[in-house]
Simulated scan of single mutants.
Amino acid sequence: MKKTSIVTGGAGFIGSHMVDYLISKGHFVIIIDNLSSGKKKNIQKHLKNKKAFLINCQIEHFKISQIRVKKIEFIFHFAGIGSIVPSITDPKKYIKTNVTGTLNILEQTKYIKYKKFVYAASSSCYGIAKTPTSEHHRISTVYPYSLSKFMGEQLCVHWNSVYKLPICSIRIFNAYGSRISFDGGYGAMFPVFMKQILKKRPLTIVGDGKQKRDFIHVTDLVKAFYCVAKSKKIGEIYNVGTGKPISVIKIAKILSDKIEFIQKRPGEPDITHANIKKITKHTKWRPKINMQNGIKDMVKNIDNWKNAPIWNKHKIARATKKWFEYLK
């Protein structure tokens, strides 16, 4: 009999890759997604082949009665709002989905049998951190998105401690790869760049571009989630990145020779750099995809972003006006 796992947000960027990987490992997957930012086309082949089943609902409204399986292998919780900048103007929306939604999935699955629940947390909880950043670093939630993701993680930690549920959390650094979403307003660098390349526009670089980010390819990332799910460790928090930060300007120059610089945003670190010693010690996981190959994969699939909005410095200034106002 096939193992059955649940992936919330399973039609989205990371979630759909998680679904792909689980199915490659012989799992049947129950996907919970309201398709607000996730795309049905990301999972269509699995639905057609009856290797997955979609429950179309908001995560805060999900009921366990919507599934009939009594025994679940793993639960991967990706459902949530991921765009950082818009959280400054609509924090209530982020708390509702990222916190209340997490509470609901924890409560709805509390009385079914499962081997591991893995929460998708964010490294943004560290704020402007000392690097390389370990899991013991102080928490500094600078904007509503980071607060909402950390509150969701705290619920998971509490449910593990009080209800003895087998839960772990992964603090994702800077995920990238095919299917990365562009529907959440101005935010993630790569969708902005891909559309600018398609339209032959200059790439907009925040600040001088010397800021570095610890980018982790989505293929490596979902394997980390799977390794943590398979591990006997419970109640653990793990950083996941490559441990090899790269500057934004270096990435931009790989992609294009047309570049323009825009004002640096307050509240954003000059570098993100994951200390990944803990996850590599507790599991067999190692990141394998380097930035050059990761970028080649994205460029090969660049048409994924043909319907993305085109951003220029004027539109970005309007979209980030409140960010500058509140975080200056």
Results as ranks from 00 to 15, higher is better:
Y226G: 00
K164S: 14
K199P: 03
V218G: 02
V192E: 09
I205M: 09
R179Y: 13
K212T: 04
K223H: 05
I216Y: 05
K164V: 03
V206G: 01
S181T: 07
K230W: 01
G184E: 13
A175S: 15
L198C: 00
V228G: 02
I216C: 03
G177T: 02
R179K: 15
G207F: 13
I180M: 13
D214N: 04
F193C: 04
D183R: 07
V218P: 00
G185A: 12
K223S: 03
H217G: 03
D214S: 07
G209T: 07
G209S: 09
T219G: 00
M189V: 15
D220I: 05
P166H: 10
P166W: 12
K200Y: 02
I167L: 13
V206D: 05
I197W: 06
F182L: 05
I172T: 15
Y163P: 09
I167V: 14
S169Q: 14
G185M: 12
C227M: 02
F190V: 15
K195C: 06
S181N: 11
K199E: 07
V206A: 08
F190W: 08
G209I: 06
F225L: 04
M194Y: 02
V206F: 09
V228I: 10
V228C: 02
F190K: 05
S231N: 13
D208Y: 07
K210L: 10
Q211W: 05
G187Q: 08
V192W: 06
V162T: 14
F193L: 04
Y186C: 04
V222S: 00
T219W: 01
Q196A: 15
F225E: 03
A188W: 08
S178G: 06
V206C: 07
S169P: 14
K212A: 08
I205L: 09
M194C: 15
K230S: 08
Y226L: 12
K195G: 06
V218T: 09
F225W: 06
F190A: 10
L165T: 09
Y226D: 03
S181I: 01
G185Y: 13
I172L: 15
F215D: 03
T219Y: 01
P202M: 11
I205G: 11
I170D: 04
A224V: 02
P202E: 13
D183Y: 11
G185H: 13
T219C: 01
A229K: 03
Q211D: 08
Y226V: 00
